[in-house]
Design a protein around this nucleic acid. Structure first.
Lengths: 192, 192
DNA sequence: GTCTATAACGGGATAGAC
DNA sequence: GTCTATCCCGTTATAGAC
């Protein structure tokens, strides 16, 4: 069962998705979590502590939901799995939106906050590695270097498209098409 | 010569590069620009006005330095020009770093600030269009739609790589290689 | 562990003189 | 156009009871 502290971090993720890291007010967070502000300081020491731990929480959670699949569904082909995994991040559902926004905020905050960098780099590495493995399933003969490069490009492109979408510079369907085309191109490029 | 207002926007770009949009304090900006806080409100109305106009300033400046070429230098081939223009944004010089950080910050802020969106979308459109034209120089037979797609992907990838670089998740040389490879791939893909 | 009440402070914004 | 001085509000953070 979720501890009080965990449910505060879940609430923090929602608040960050609404107003960003900069817009997170401890009082609003308290209201969202249904607790007093004092309790937040009790569990997290200060506002920075809330952010640090919530961002860690978010990157862990993102790792999890990308891997999950429906129970009775037919097992997808490697190619389908790759495409689904990446396109999953470009969807206008509450959960994805929340995670994408929070992830973008985390990324942006790390530019100025050294303490976030290591954790972020680690989460990025894991994600890129996961995509590289999926690409390897599609193109078993491709070299590890080529797979790693393609994975790094596809995930970086996804982050770029996602931010454009969320900031209102690119309609979602177009973002999805662009990503799908890039997947095609990278897979073609890895062909024997 | 630079007006007072312009020099305040230059100072704002520096402060944003140091502490982010989130960390921009009007008082610090005033100190950086060597003026009083009241003067800032006189010229920009409020803090948001500073951000809005600085964003415009930054995107204009980026357009300029991207387009500039050395005087006596031999005119580059279309292919060289394309590559140089894009790779220019991945360099560890003060000016580029400052612009990239500020651009990333404004992009991230626009997710929560409606007032920045239109200007940002406009600047993005101009930039994508410029790259599409350079691609058209390399592949004159390619369709406008194909050129626009490739340009959108390359610039979005560049933003993604840039943010990874600035947030410490990707070494600069690697980011440059990845982008160069993507340019190769897109140009190949547009081949007749 | 959790609350209510409040202290303490940072920073955006303005008044008014020059 | 530009400054000095200051107001004032929103937020962070803590004290102390339960």
């Amino acid at each position: 069962m979720a501890s009080r502290k965990t449910s505060i971090m879940e609430a923090a993720a929602r608040v960050i998705a609404r107003h960003g890291v900069r817009g997170l007010r401890v009082e609003e967070l308290a209201a969202e979590a249904g607790v007093s502000t004092a309790l937040i300081y009790y569990h997290f020491k200060d506002r920075t502590g809330v952010l640090r731990q919530t961002l860690e929480f978010i990157s862990d959670r993102a790792e999890r939901y990308t891997t999950e699949r429906a129970e009775g569904a037919p097992p997808p082909t490697p190619r389908e799995e790759l495409e689904q995994t990446l396109l999953l991040e470009l969807q206008d559902t509450t959960e994805v939106r929340e995670n994408s926004i929070a992830w973008g905020e985390l990324r942006a905050s790390a530019v100025f906050d050294e303490t976030l960098r290591e954790e972020l780099a680690r989460a990025t590495r894991i994600w890129v590695q996961e995509i590289a493995e999926l690409l390897g399933g599609v193109r078993p003969m491709a070299s590890a270097v080529a797979l790693a490069g393609a994975a790094e490009r596809l995930t970086a492109l996804l982050e770029g498209l996602s931010t454009r979408w969320l900031s209102g510079s690119l309609p979602l369907p177009q973002a999805r098409t662009l990503l799908a085309d890039a997947i095609d191109a990278e897979v073609d490029r890895l062909a024997p």
